[in-house]
Design a protein around this nucleic acid. Structure first.
Lengths: 174, 174
DNA sequence: TATTGTATATTCAACGTTGATTATTTAAGT
DNA sequence: ACTTAAATAATCAACGTTGAATATACAATA
């Protein structure tokens, strides 16, 4: 996924690894994509070796250098293949750690279970609120395209399902 | 998550890495957990080094040896900490690769978008059906505990949200 | 002017995952 | 008895991720 993102960004214009981090932050994308700096730079290195991107220029500021990367023809080709395969790949992401924990729930006393669920529910609601604020703030500046609004809606739906799931789970132990 | 699972299994009784694989398969858990053999053995190695598990016995069958691991007191302690922290951790898992792809959807011609969505939808429905068959088959033998039924229901809900999401997305390009 | 903090820009060792590969045993067919 | 296939059991190199660490530049404040 990191490669898809990096190639996608370079599709628009040449860019440095640092600028990518900033774009992901500024567009709230880091909230759901979770792409860390290390992954971006690693991806740039290996994709350079694979001939998918190359260094376009090196900008100097005093004693500090910044590498600007650009996508190659081969990279553009690869990008569209990645893009298409990412669209056809079935996209259901389970909260596997929670599922695993629930598998062993019977080993925990009821009070601990109930308290844990309550803590998670609170954390979930806070994330949800923060996400909503993020979208509203962003939508105020740049009117979001319809397909991006659908992505946000999809994230909200996931939250709601998870909240209802926690409620049902709690009812089992009350 | 691999550690949580491995420690959890060893909570019930000593077991070999191979037996864990079989249990995960037989209980359909591998369908959603996706824990590969390599991860299990790696986890057993590092947890042995950390003193969380230890080799209980080595069974020999001809020239083939099988290591049976058991959990230690320290491991049991660690397990319950992992279990509790896994329950409080907010549990929303986004389909990040799909989201990333959608971010760059405007770079693709409409026909390709529509065709890709259709292919994914079909794949999703097939996974969904297979999962349902799996549960029914399992429920026929061993009446599933309520909290496990909730997990299955949660998976189905995720599928339905994703299917509706794809429909909405398609409508944008029809 | 010196100091402190923050932004810029990247590297790297430690760690975990992946999946191909190896090797042996058992069962089934011919 | 011989060959083939499947089940058993585990290893390992290649690869990607993580997060702490490094190092410089710039801005603010004392």
């Amino acid at each position: 996924m990191t490669r898809l993102m990096v190639l996608g960004l370079l599709t628009y214009r040449p860019m440095s690894g640092y600028e990518m981090q900033q774009m992901l932050q500024q567009s709230q994308t880091d909230k759901w994509a979770g792409i860390l700096p290390g992954s971006i730079y690693h991806s740039l290195k290996t994709m350079t070796a694979d001939g998918l991107v190359e260094i376009d220029a090196v900008e100097h500021t005093g004693h500090r250098a910044k590498a600007i990367y650009k996508i190659t023809d081969k990279g553009r080709e690869q990008f569209f293949e990645l893009l298409k395969s990412s669209l056809v790949e079935p996209s259901v992401a389970y909260p596997t750690t929670l599922y695993t924990a629930i598998s062993f729930l019977e080993l925990l006393p009821k009070e601990v279970i109930l308290e844990s669920i309550n803590v998670q529910e609170k954390a979930l609601r806070e994330q949800y609120e923060e996400m909503k604020r993020g979208e509203e703030q962003k939508a105020a500046h740049t009117s979001l395209p319809a397909h991006i609004r659908l992505v946000f809606q999809n994230m909200y739906d996931q939250f709601e399902i998870q909240l209802r799931f926690l409620q049902k789970l709690r009812e089992l132990y009350e």
